[in-house]
Simulated scan of single mutants.
Amino acid sequence: MDHHVRRHRGGFLFAKVWILVEGETDETVFQECARILGHDLFGEGICCFKFVELGVAPFIRLADQLGISWIVVADGDAAGGKYVATARGLLNGRNVDEHIVQLPTYDIETLLCLHGYGHLYAASVSPQKLAANPNPHTHGTEQYWEHVVNKLQPEKGKPTRILPVIDALEDAGPPAVPQVIKSVIDQALIAAKEGA
C-alpha cells in the first residue's frame, strides 16, 4: 500500500471513486479513453490504478473504510474471474453492476485488437518470432488476437505498446472508445457526482 501512496503522492486517498484495474496498460487505457471522451478523471475526483501487487481485497476494504466508491475491472481470464469473485464477496449488499466489470475478452489488449487496433500489435511482431510460433487461429478472431498479444509480443513493455493504439483512438475520436470502457468511465463519473 505504501507504494501506491508514494506513487500517487497520497492523492488517491482523497478521491471520490477508485477504478481498480489489473495492470499499467489498463491504467493508461482508462485514463486516456476518458480524456478522449472529454473527461479529466483526476479533476472529477476519480483515481484509476492497478491492484495486482496486493490483490483487490485490501483496496476494496480501504476504500470502504475511507468512504470511497470503487469499481473493479478484471480481465476475462481465470485470474480475472478470481478477482471478480473476491470483489463480489466484498459488495456488502451493493449492486454488482455498479462495482464489478469483467472484460468480455482475455485482456484489455485483446479487446482493443477486436475493436480494430490489432494491426498495431501485429506490426510489432518480429518475423523470427512469428516463424517460431505461427498463429494457429483464424485471422481476426478473439483467439487469433490473444495469440498475437500473449504469445508473439515481448514479455516486457506492454504499457509502451499501447501508445500507438492510444494515438489511433485519439485520431478516431470518442466513437472509437470501446463501449465497455466507456461504460466504466460513465459509471465512475456518476459515482463521483453522487459522492460530491
Rank of each mutant, 00 (worst) to 15 (best):
H3Y: 13
V5W: 12
R9F: 08
R9M: 05
G10Q: 13
G11W: 09
K16N: 11
V21W: 01
E22C: 03
E22G: 03
G23Y: 03
T25I: 06
D26A: 12
E27I: 07
E27W: 06
E32Y: 09
C33M: 06
C33L: 12
L37M: 07
H39S: 01
C47P: 01
C47T: 02
C47G: 02
C48S: 08
K50A: 15
K50L: 06
F51M: 11
F51D: 03
F51V: 11
E53S: 10
G55R: 07
G55Q: 10
F59V: 07
I60E: 10
A63D: 08
A63R: 08
G67E: 11
G67I: 09
W70L: 05
I71E: 00
V72N: 00
D75S: 04
G76Q: 02
D77I: 05
Y83G: 08
A87L: 09
A87W: 11
R88Y: 04
L90Y: 11
N95V: 14
E98L: 12
E98T: 08
H99F: 06
I100S: 04
P104S: 15
T105K: 04
E109Y: 04
L111Y: 08
Y121H: 10
Y121C: 09
A122G: 02
A123P: 04
S126H: 09
P127Y: 13
P127S: 07
K129H: 11
K129V: 15
A131Q: 14
N135F: 14
H137N: 15
T141Q: 07
Y144F: 15
W145V: 12
W145N: 06
H147Y: 15
V148Y: 03
K156P: 00
P159H: 09
R161A: 15
P164T: 12
L169W: 14
L169V: 13
E170Q: 06
E170S: 14
P174W: 10
P174M: 11
P175E: 06
P175L: 14
Q179R: 11
V180S: 07
D186L: 01
Q187I: 00
L189Y: 02
K193T: 06
K193M: 07
A196T: 03
